[in-house]
Design a protein around this nucleic acid. Sequence first.
DNA 1: CGGTATCCAAAAGGATACTG
DNA 2: CAGTATCCTTTTGGATACCG
Lengths: 123, 123
Amino acid sequence: MTVSGWNLDSDQMCPQRLVLEHVTSRWGVLALIALEERSHRFSELRRALGRVSEKMLTQTLQTLERDGLVHRDAKPVIPPRVDYSLTDLGREAAEQVRALAAWTERRMDDVHKARAAYDEARS
Amino acid sequence: MTVSGWNLDSDQMCPQRLVLEHVTSRWGVLALIALEERSHRFSELRRALGRVSEKMLTQTLQTLERDGLVHRDAKPVIPPRVDYSLTDLGREAAEQVRALAAWTERRMDDVHKARAAYDEARS
DNA sequence: CGGTATCCAAAAGGATACTG
DNA sequence: CAGTATCCTTTTGGATACCG
């Protein structure tokens, strides 16, 4: 992989860059990891993700659904019930971001040490 | 991996989440991929990354340096010459983000199809 | 319950001018 | 050349109110 092809062209990102932003976005990462474990209702996801606003969760899920990563199953009952789950594509995406997340977790100690050394050298 | 531990606590993200944001940031991704190939001078990186402002490139490189992913070598010459390269930790990070980037590239067709179907169903 | 619409505050990002 | 400092625009995110 080269950096060319991931550049911005005039006034716009390359399309794969947008997908990368969707899956690594603040709530996208958490939604994918939560949904990898099991399907969730909207309100379950809200609780699982902590302090996400309705607007941001809706926006995140719609983006991931549009990209074909998340499946939305709205049951026609009252009160409404909507279940979210991963598609096969979404499961692949979740594995990728989980791998990246796991790496940051594994190396967090090294990062902390590096930061301490960096800050020390400048104080 | 569970989603707990990646939540926000009160008014702040968990630390590994910040590292993930650094390496997946707009310019962080491109800088890591460019530096994985070879070390670059500041101005070389500016050109390689396309249309990044000096401010954002500086900020990105400082963040990655502080996290211990990038090595900054400022030679005491006139005019100044500063070379950036990856540390061992940074090389690991670059491999991870490149894997994720490669996945989005591989699956871009599926995403496009999903988007077309999504948009079609709503028009 | 699971959203949408609107408004507003905060943060990110960039253009420009300047410096060692 | 490789930054820093300042200002300003754009984007993001959340709070609130309302709807089917």
